[in-house]
Amino acid sequence: MFAVVAAVLFFFAFLINAAEISTNDVFSSVNVMLLGLTALALHVAGAAGWASSRSSRRR
């Protein structure tokens, strides 16, 4: 789930940068990219893995 969020955030950061859209300092392409990296790090760390580990305990 976090990987999909990261991909969407990276796409928005690319659009902001490629189209040279002027945004405020909070919503800049670098900040959106950093949010995407945070979501990607959570995905790699397994932050949403608790739901799948519970279902794998069934026999």
Results as ranks from 00 to 15, higher is better:
Phe2Arg: 06
Phe2Thr: 00
Ala3Tyr: 08
Ala3His: 01
Val4Met: 02
Val5Ser: 08
Val5Ala: 12
Ala6Asp: 02
Val8Gly: 13
Val8Pro: 00
Val8Phe: 00
Val8Ser: 11
Phe10Pro: 03
Phe10Thr: 02
Phe10Cys: 06
Phe11Val: 14
Phe12Tyr: 15
Phe12Met: 15
Ala13Gly: 07
Ala13Tyr: 01
Phe14Asp: 11
Phe14Ile: 12
Leu15His: 13
Leu15Ser: 04
Ile16Met: 01
Ile16Val: 09
Ile16Asp: 05
Ala18Leu: 13
Ala18Met: 10
Ala18Asp: 10
Ala18Pro: 06
Ala19Arg: 15
Ala19Ile: 10
Glu20Pro: 06
Ile21Asn: 10
Ile21Trp: 09
Ile21Phe: 11
Ile21Thr: 11
Ser22Trp: 09
Ser22His: 12
Ser22Ile: 07
Thr23Phe: 11
Thr23Gln: 02
Asn24Val: 05
Asn24Tyr: 07
Asn24Thr: 10
Asp25Met: 13
Phe27Gln: 11
Phe27Lys: 02
Phe27Ser: 10
Phe27Ala: 08
Ser28Val: 00
Ser28Ala: 04
Ser29Gln: 04
Ser29Asp: 14
Ser29Val: 02
Ser29Arg: 12
Val30Ile: 14
Val30Asn: 04
Asn31Pro: 04
Val32Pro: 12
Val32Ala: 15
Met33Ser: 15
Met33Gln: 10
Leu35Val: 05
Leu35Lys: 02
Gly36Trp: 03
Gly36Gln: 06
Leu37Lys: 11
Thr38Met: 12
Thr38Pro: 03
Thr38Asp: 10
Thr38Gly: 13
Ala39Glu: 09
Ala39Lys: 05
Ala39Arg: 06
Ala39His: 12
Ala41Met: 11
Ala41Tyr: 02
Ala41Phe: 10
Ala41Glu: 08
Leu42Asn: 05
Leu42Lys: 08
Val44Asp: 03
Ala45Ser: 05
Ala45Ile: 12
Gly46Tyr: 05
Gly46Trp: 07
Ala47Gln: 08
Ala47Cys: 03
Ala47Gly: 11
Ala48Ile: 04
Ala48Thr: 15
Ala48Ser: 14
Ala48Phe: 07
Gly49Cys: 06
Trp50Ser: 09
Trp50Asn: 03
Ala51Glu: 09
Ser52Met: 06
Ser52Gln: 15
Ser52Asp: 15
Ser53Ile: 06
Ser53Phe: 00
Arg54Val: 14
Arg54Gln: 14
Ser56Phe: 11
Arg57Cys: 01
Arg57Ile: 07
Arg57Gln: 05
Arg58Cys: 08
Arg58His: 14
Arg59Phe: 02
Arg59Ser: 08
Arg59Met: 01
Arg59Leu: 00
